[in-house]
Design a protein around this nucleic acid. Structure first.
Length: 425
RNA sequence: GUGGGAGUAGCUCAAUCGGUAGAGCAUCGGACUGUGGCUCCGACGGUUGCGGGUUCAAUUCCCGUCUCCCACCCCA
């Protein structure tokens, strides 16, 4: 049997109702904040991710699905292509390609699949879905304003509340400018040097390759050493500091709770200033439900003009996992199930179904060969509100037996009044 | 990519010391020819993930492999 490839899965009804519930709610929220949808290709030039995400990151070095195009045209052949591992690079590429700076400030959102060649785990797939947004534009259009950071964070709080996730924590930090980070990294290496021998094997490696990640260490014995390390907060320049303060003040003004986490670092190279994560307790080791931050230098890194930006990406798979609502509860059930009864009744049933569906009713129907008992069982199973019986008696009278399945009440309703009756309850 | 656990009917799970696989639910049919979630009866459903090995005999023991789960690396 051919199975779906490792780390991929089929989303089936009724679960897809839950996904649609999330996506519909998310679109509503984006609309309220005047964000508009962008759809970028699912694959791009490998170079885009190498330059945009960072040549040295794990994502680019070992987690991408990459292949060589073998098109007929000389210009296509040998082009290295990659399934997008994230969507920010693609959005910024589109920003540059279509000169979107001419539109002033762009407030864009996307919903779609991303791909990483990782070892699968719960809530972590090789084809996974992200809901994200980017605010990007010339500095003169306000793209650099702390008001944009705060607006994004407030939007996210609204969004999570809206889908019924209330147990979230917003962790906030500033990672400063690239220069701030370089200084901090040097200091960190020096601070680690005398103690590193006593630390776990992972930390010994991190101390050399990526000192920032030492903060993520969960080994209890290492914590006393980590406590003594400097934090990036002390290395922020005046601009970064002022920006961070302004963001926090707006959050206070709109009553969005947050905790400052000076150890929160971001893995991708392009982040500057504000960095944040929303976590949810019930998710185990993979407790981050979304993350994001500011990336003021990304456009230039991709060959574009200066274009400060801030964005986030929600792991939709994990978001759906942490939902308390059940798929069953958000599934729209049929308003009525039509049971044609006896030879020739399919035609009349089809006519009725068509009439009722015009009234925005959800109608399903069976077949004239079904015994009435079977039709009732089918209607019950799909949780239809009403069953509508279409038999010879009904057709002769042009009035139909309509039974409310939950209460058992049955009435005979003239054809012209059927929709009204069904809409009633 | 590393370490550990698990794979038996569509789903959830049994199967004693190694003796050729069973239940509940689901599906379909009947009891019941125009009135339902109940009840009873019956049917359908299996390469025990896949491949190899040991054995008279393997769901069971061994090896390999695939997939999922947990943790790590990393990240949303």
């Amino acid at each position: 049997m051919i199975k779906s490839p490792r780390g991929t899965r089929d989303l089936l009804p009724p679960d897809t109702a839950l996904w649609n519930f999330v996506e519909t709610a998310v679109r509503d929220v984006f609309r309220a904040y005047n964000f508009h949808e962008i759809r970028t290709p699912i694959f791009e030039s490998t170079e885009l991710f190498a330059r945009g995400v960072g040549e040295e990151t794990d994502v680019v070095m070992k987690e991408m699905f990459t292949w060589e195009d073998r098109g007929r045209a000389e210009s296509d052949r040998g082009q290295s292509l990659t399934l997008r591992p994230e969507n920010t690079a693609g959005v910024v590429r589109a920003y540059i390609e279509h000169k979107l700076w001419d539109r002033g400030l762009n407030k864009l959102f996307y919903i779609g699949p991303q791909f990483r060649r990782e070892r699968p785990q719960k809530g972590r797939y090789r084809q996974f879905y992200q809901i994200g947004a980017e605010v990007i534009g010339p500095a003169a259009a306000g793209s650099q304003s702390p008001a944009r950071d705060a607006e994004i964070l407030e939007l996210l709080a609204t969004l999570l509340d809206r889908v019924g996730i209330t147990q979230w924590t917003l962790e906030l930090n500033s990672v400063g400018s690239p220069a701030d980070r370089a200084k901090f990294n040097d200091t960190l290496r020096q601070a680690l040097a005398p103690a590193v021998e006593k630390m776990c094997a992972d930390c010994q490696r991190r101390a050399i390759t990526n000192p920032l990640r030492v903060f993520d260490c969960k080994v209890p014995e290492d914590q006393p050493i980590i406590e003594t390390l400097p934090t990036i907060t002390q290395f922020l320049n005046d601009d970064s500091r002022a920006h961070f303060e302004a963001v926090k003040q707006i959050l206070n003004a709109v009553s969005i709770p947050y905790v400052e986490n000076p150890r929160l670092v971001r893995g991708l190279d392009y982040y500057t200033h504000t960095a944040f994560e929303f976590t949810h307790g019930a998710l185990g080791a993979q407790n981050a439900i979304l993350g994001g931050g500011r990336y003021d230098g990304l456009s230039e890194a991709l060959g574009g003009p200066p274009a400060p930006g801030i964005g986030f990406a929600i792991g939709e798979d994990r978001l759906v996992l942490s939902l308390t609502a059940s798929a069953e509860s958000v599934l729209r059930k049929p308003d009525a199930y039509i049971a044609p009864l006896g030879a020739g009744m399919n035609r009349e049933a089809a006519r009725l179904a068509r009439e009722l569906r015009r009234h925005d009713l959800v109608i399903d129907l069976g077949d004239e060969s079904f015994r009435l008992k079977k039709s009732f069982e089918t209607a019950d199973k799909m949780r239809a509100r009403y069953i509508l019986i279409v038999g010879e008696n009904e057709v002769a009278a042009n009035a139909f037996s309509l039974k409310h399945l939950a209460s058992g009440e049955q009435v005979t309703v003239p054809r012209a009044e059927l929709a009204q009756q069904i809409l009633r309850k």
